[in-house]
Design a binder for these strands. Structure first.
Length: 325
DNA sequence: TAAGATAAGAGGGACAT
DNA sequence: ATGTCAGTCTTATCTTA
């Protein structure tokens, strides 16, 4: 009970704040979702709220290492147990016909219970999703700032009723992948499927992909096209290639971009093909098969990108290093 | 064995109906 | 809302050096 009153105070306090970004506009907040944002410009202002009460979403950088938490947070438990399980069952099963004022009371309580149940399912969903989010982020070595972003995206999705009828795990993975794309963090969609159960990884890729697009559209997000070079270090280290080869690959990609030879292609395959070309020009033996495995794309795709890249860069490439093959 | 070539199919975007 | 089209990527199979 005390928790709820203090939450209410927090709620009012936050409601009266003003957005530091765009001036005098009011700030909209929903303590149940832990969401605080500016109604006008969309700026997220949830830091203060984070500090005031310990919550499931408050993973600081220190906390990130230690598994954040596994159970539901205390405040959410209050909301759930206090209203849904304590109040109504105590009034309900008296069995006899109630006097009229008591019936009115019952109706009010039922309304509250309905609200509390709705809210608690909302909260249970969030709790589960945040646990999964933390697990995924840990598995894929995703920094906490990006995970935080993903949590925000998930909450918005939940608010817009995008989760109902869909897998929480898949939506969570899609949120995290979306956050990676938004922050240009080099993570591939297939990794998110691998992080779940292996047997249906293939189906999961499609599922996550669908939800990724769904979220992107529903939340009106503009995804920056990522630069193929962000994938170079990972692929190169998988292959044990030198920094010099990486630098050559970077040059190749830059030239290719200037010739508009990379648009519409998977950045990962561009990066992989550039590395293949660079390694070959450097007389370091590396097979297409190895490159394909390191980049997690198929050999055929490597070949196609290899062909299109060499074609696009024909002048520079042939004059620099290699005659023909 | 590595690399090239070809074909068929999936999934989704653009566009028209 | 539904269908078609062009393009990408994948899987599979065969050929070539």
């Amino acid at each position: 009970m005390e928790m709820r009153e203090s939450d209410l105070r927090t709620f009012k306090l936050l409601q009266q704040r003003h957005c530091p970004e765009c001036g005098g506009t009011t700030v909209l907040t929903d303590p149940a979702a832990g969401e605080v944002m500016c109604r006008a410009c969309g700026l997220v202002l949830d830091e203060d709220h984070l500090d005031q009460s310990p919550e499931w979403r408050a993973f600081s950088p220190d906390e990130q290492r230690a598994r954040v938490r596994s159970g539901p947070p205390t405040s959410l438990r209050y909301l759930n147990g206090g209203l849904a399980t304590t109040f109504l069952p105590r009034h309900d099963p008296s069995g006899n016909v109630l006097p009229f004022p008591a019936q009115q009371t019952m109706q009010r309580l039922q309304r509250w219970q309905h609200r509390a149940q709705t809210q608690s399912s909302h909260d249970r969903n969030l709790t589960q999703a945040m646990t999964e989010l933390a697990r995924l982020a840990d598995y894929l070595n995703i920094p906490s700032t990006v995970t935080e972003h993903a949590a925000f995206l998930y909450r918005k999705a939940l608010h817009q009723n995008l989760v109902r009828g869909r897998s929480i795990h898949a939506i969570t993975a899609a949120s995290l992948y979306l956050a990676c794309r938004l922050t240009q963090l080099p993570r591939q969609l297939t990794m998110f499927a691998d992080a779940n159960e292996q047997p249906h990884a293939r189906a999961r890729v499609k599922e996550i992909s669908r939800y990724y697009r769904l979220l992107q559209r529903a939340l009106n997000l503009e995804i920056p096209v990522d630069d193929p070079t962000i994938y170079l270090p990972k692929i190169a280290s998988n292959l044990g290639l030198t920094q010099r080869i990486q630098n050559t690959a970077i040059q190749l990609i830059h030239s290719a971009k200037q010739r508009h030879a990379v648009v519409g292609k998977n950045p990962v395959s561009i990066a992989a093909a550039a590395l293949y070309i660079a390694a070959r020009g450097d007389a370091t033996p590396v097979t297409q098969k190895a490159v394909a495995a390191a980049a997690e794309v198929t050999e055929v795709t490597i070949r196609n990108r290899y062909k299109s890249l060499t074609h696009a860069l024909e002048l520079e490439f042939t004059s620099q290093s290699e005659p023909a093959s």
